[in-house]
Design a protein around this nucleic acid. Structure first.
Lengths: 213, 213, 213, 213
DNA sequence: CGTTAACCGAGACGGTACGTCTGGTCTTTAA
DNA sequence: TTAAAGACCAGACGTACCGTCTCGGTTAACG
């Protein structure tokens, strides 16, 4: 029962231009300076054309996040500590990037910037939230699998709870970005992974040598 | 060196009325339906009177949060597991309350609601963020002390990192509320505390009997 | 070289509704009670729609004057005295009407009412002033022509100055309305025309019989 | 039945300072930039102190006009043409001064400036209008007497109407300033006086030599 | 010489209009 | 049917200014 498309097809070029324009504006001024009117004008596109694709500014925002967000590949080298560190550092980098969008770099700036705007957008529209979570579903599933694998091969306590462990890791990072505004750098990720693995690894097993200092 | 107050003093009654009106409106319609005009009208107050105290809707919001927020007393009974559970459950309750403000109760509602609005407000205005963090500073300090005390008396491994442990606990909860939208109930708090404390106790010490499975 | 109009055309209906609503409000409460918000509400129109056409309350006012102002047809019957009287009475009627807009009729009310508001509007914005003067340009030109015609056919002294004579006539009326607040009725117009023509008619010529008492 | 004044007397210094400050602000920015708040601040005076003297911005304005207005002495040299010219030129100068208050001098500026603001103030408040007219009452009475005297000694036609003649003269000047925006200079005053006096003199009397063409 | 009434400064207050901005929809003509 | 253009509705925002009120404190004239 194929749906027949009739009439003029939508211009892919318009969609691209809109996203590019939106990205430019977002990067230069942050979420609050991002207004539909300007996006359309800069893309040389009518507002109708924009709204036909993204029914809301918030919907446009998630599309933008999907575009900006670097793909965070989750690798499973069987070295849990290493894999987690890599993964969390990638997340931290992405968040740090987004929190600084549209604002001059100041070391004591604790604002969550665009990250909070995204959270608010997701809170305003259920479908935006769903779309946003769908974006991370795959990679988070991989991360969960990482932990579950480690548990099964004995690198984690048999009663360890991968879902909760993941929350502890990702949650700490998001918490710092969204709530306390404290910096999240490689050193912090290191401490975080150490802390989580310290409690999650089987107590009787001898601690494996850490290859990285 | 007393500071002399000159001019007509600000009416405490006005401030109270404004906050009460704002709270009513927030509870009934959520953050987006909270508009200054209505707050002032409902409080029977001129808009100027409101703006003189809170220069922005976002500033008003933090004042509101401070008012709504139940005081979460941190108690130190020397039983870390119990103290943490109590504390985290209080936080979870508060967040669950706020996330449901202004929206009909639906079990599959993953929206962070007002919580995200607060985060966004804090991200928009540096001073709002600072005020917000100041609100939590005291109680968070107590929670840190809880962990540090446990470490010093040997209920936590000597190399445990109280700051990071706290991030893991609070972070996981905030992460669920703000990012994944998964429910945060007492059972989850239980799992969380269990996971964090799993072998945070020194490995050589005999594990105390856990009464709850 | 036709100019192509693009986009949705402006609604004539909206403009009409706005002017009608504004007129209603002006008539009922005078200039000070005329507020944009109410005009838009009464016209069932968004404020933007109004501001797109008239960028200022003052601009709206001149549009209103143009609408209210009855067309004062200047007729040239070759009888200067008669033509001038007709013309000046029409002006006086219009001014008396406007000065009484929005205020209860009191015989000793010397206020210039809306007339002064218009003058002030014209003084505040150069373009409003220009628009206002443009409105009167045509009919004033006709009045000047009346005087000039009379001069050329010998009904006025050959050295009479039509422009100045016109100022004397119209000026006296406006002066009473705007400055002294004295009433301007038909009897005054009569005296005024008599006074001006007495000095402006050729002294040697026998005064023509006045047909009207 | 003298009214006994009790309590602290009003400070004359305050009144002077207020007027001075108001004048400064009016001269620098025109009527629209004149706000009570600034006047009080500049005068180093509380707003209450100001309102105790002038209940309204408009009332303050007339007080200001009275201060700024140069006294226009009306002299009676028995030479009507000369006396009128002197008087009208003084009026024209005063109006030209006021119309230019607060705006950069541009030759094609047709705005009536503060003059229109005064007219509007007088139209808004009956008592302001009355006060304003009272200011001019004396000198206008003198001007009327000038005309009446000329009539009685035969320099004007016996049936001349001094009140109307005065309206023609003053009215023409005000009309140009308030309505048409045309310049009012000495040459115009000359033409105006010429036009009014043209045959206002009794037609049978020999015309006096006019020294200026 | 103390009372007392009216003043003074500072500044908060109620009220209200203003003009702006933005989001999202609708109506044109053209392709 | 889509596109571009731009008008449209809706409504919140924050500002500005007016004129009033409330403080604590001051300054005469009255008694």
């Amino acid at each position: 029962v194929r749906q027949v498309r009739r009439g003029r097809p939508r211009s892919q070029q318009a969609a691209d231009g809109i996203l590019a324009a939106a990205q430019d504006l977002l990067l230069s001024g942050g979420y609050d300076d991002l207004c539909i009117e300007d996006v359309a004008a800069r893309a040389g596109v009518a507002k109708t054309t924009l709204y036909r694709r993204w029914p809301t500014k918030d919907h446009l925002l998630v599309a933008l996040v999907a575009k900006i967000q670097d793909n965070v590949p989750v690798t499973d080298t069987q070295d849990l500590r290493h894999d987690l560190s890599t993964y969390l550092n990638a997340i931290a980098d992405a968040l740090n990037h987004m929190r600084r969008i549209g604002r001059p770099h100041q070391p004591d700036d604790r604002s969550a910037g665009v990250v909070a705007a995204i959270a608010a957008a997701a809170a305003r529209h259920a479908d935006v939230g769903a779309a946003l979570r769908a974006q991370f579903a795959h990679r988070n599933a991989l991360a969960h699998a990482l932990l579950e694998g480690a548990r099964q091969r004995g690198d984690l306590r048999p009663d360890a709870d991968p879902a909760v462990l993941f929350d502890q890791l990702a949650g700490a990072i998001y918490y710092r970005v969204l709530v306390t505004g404290e910096p999240v750098d490689a050193a912090y990720v290191q401490r975080l992974v150490d802390s989580v693995l310290a409690t999650a690894q089987p107590p009787t097993a001898p601690q494996p040598e850490r290859p990285h200092p």
